[in-house]
């Protein structure tokens, strides 16, 4: 039986690196477009309606591009890596739902005095997702 040629058939690693780079580029572009849509109307073009609409639509379009890049990235992973991501996403969604609703409730029942922000929930979901991915990798190590 012939020996698998590592240099020739390292297709998985190359594909994964390419998909990761692609996703990273889309993510950076989306973050920049979000920053433009959030701050440029106030600091650059004084709430010019047309420019603001263009910035928001552009941000949405780039956001969808990022989602498609994420889809390609996830489909390019092997079955164990997909399982790790799937478990982490499930955990993140669950924690986001439970913590998000409870967090929103805190203001309604006057346990906190400030307005709950969606950004806080996003941070919690991101940290949970990150923790889930790390835990998944440790589990199969």
């Amino acid at each position: 039986m012939t020996k698998p040629e590592q240099s020739i058939t390292n297709e998985y690693k190359d594909r994964n690196c390419k998909n990761t780079r692609n996703l990273r580029s889309w993510t950076i572009a989306w973050v920049v477009s979000m920053a433009v849509a959030a701050f440029a109307p106030k600091y650059i073009w004084d709430f010019h309606t047309l420019l603001t609409i263009i910035a928001v639509v552009l941000s949405l379009a780039i956001g969808f591009g990022m989602l498609l890049a994420n889809r390609v990235y996830l489909r390019g992973l092997d079955e164990m890596q997909q399982r790790i991501m799937f478990d982490a996403m499930g955990l993140s969604l669950g924690v986001g739902l439970v913590v998000g609703l409870s967090y929103e409730l805190l203001e309604d029942i006057k346990l906190i005095s400030f307005q709950p922000e969606i950004a806080h929930l996003v941070v919690i979901m991101c940290l949970t997702y990150l923790g889930g991915v790390i835990a998944g990798h440790r589990k199969y190590q």
């Binding site: 698998p4 590592q6 390292n10 990798h137």
Partner: peptide, 18 residues
């Protein structure tokens, strides 16, 4: 067969960790 994990991973199109 004297294969490394990386070589087997390449042949099966999965990661070495898998």
């Amino acid at each position: 067969r004297d294969w490394t994990q990386a070589q087997l991973a390449s042949a099966l199109d999965v990661s070495r960790q898998t």
